[in-house]
Nucleic acid binder design. Structure first.
Lengths: 164, 164
DNA sequence: ATGCGATAGTTGTAGCAACAACCAAACAGC
DNA sequence: GCTGTTTGGTTGTTGCTACAACTATCGCAT
């Protein structure tokens, strides 16, 4: 019954244990900074950021869901909350009456502008400034390989290939 | 009022965007495999794994909390659930009447043995096997640098320094 | 001995995420 | 021009996490 498992060797285990630790700690660090300074979760922030870079600061829910790697259900809940807070507005898509557009309001735009510097600073402090330029390049390649496994359809490709 | 922000350059942004994507996708991938195949969250699994490697398969709640980077409150809830399922048992610590010990039951031990191969296989598929040996070594160094920022007190050091 | 701050852990509650069920508009086939 | 299917989105439920309040014990200084 037991399938012969290829266990991890010492070096692989070293990398994995550290990755697991980062996976546990980093999201919390990002989240708590944004929550404290901008009353936003990291996911909230990312949603607003994607909208802020879109033409007319508007995207269809489906497009926004792909950009943020979220299910439509999750996105819908999040957008509902952000809409209540006046940061986003929803309106029916004229071209396709099934569809809904989400647009960043002026207040939402202001919120992104206000939150960005602190967020970037946190990213620097926790990750970027800890690495040499060579390591930053290595990290990019490594993560690309991993993403290729995680996201074979490259649904998110559009987002991060803008930054090549 | 505006503090002069050091924005990320192209290469830094490339690394960061990819890291954000991995942070979003990888935990879900790990979680859903374990949930599907062993009815365990990744955190559940890690708790059981830490206990399974401890002397007598027993640890004080505080020690277990440190090993898993969890708050005591979070751990308490998780252990309550695992206890209900018969995978862990709690008993008062004889030396310190404030303290509680958590011990892995035989059923819990069996669960870990059963879940481990599938989990390792997922780790291989999504991360390790996507990388060259050089990249694995690079990743370890990179993550060490990040962890140093993230966890300056090295609370988790004990866990991952076992794998040097 | 006793009074007080620190330590160890539990519990209640509120908020967010995953999953599934659901409805409506659009499209494809005949 | 009906009918069945796919697409786009919302809503309800359940489970887990964070936060805060609370109890009990310990250690130590007086």
């Amino acid at each position: 019954m037991t399938v012969d498992t290829r266990w991890l060797d010492q070096e692989q285990k070293a990398a994995w244990v550290r990755l697991a630790a980062v996976l546990e700690l980093l999201p919390g660090a990002l989240d708590s900074q944004l929550r404290r300074d901008a009353q936003l979760t990291h996911f909230d922030y990312f949603v607003l950021a994607m909208l802020s870079e879109a033409p007319n600061r508007t995207l269809r829910m489906t497009a926004l869901a792909e950009l943020t790697t979220a299910t439509l259900a999750r996105l819908s809940h999040v957008v509902t909350r952000l809409e209540t807070r006046g940061l986003i507005e929803r309106f029916p898509c004229p071209e396709d009456k099934r569809a809904t557009n989400a647009r960043l309001t002026d207040a939402g735009w202001a919120k992104v502008r206000e939150a960005a510097p602190g967020h970037v600073e946190t990213v620097r402090e926790t990750v970027i400034d800890a690495l040499t330029p060579e390591q930053v390049a290595q990290l990019t390649e490594i993560l690309d390989a991993v993403l290729h496994r995680l996201d074979p359809t490259r649904a998110r490709a559009a987002v991060y290939e803008r930054y090549d």
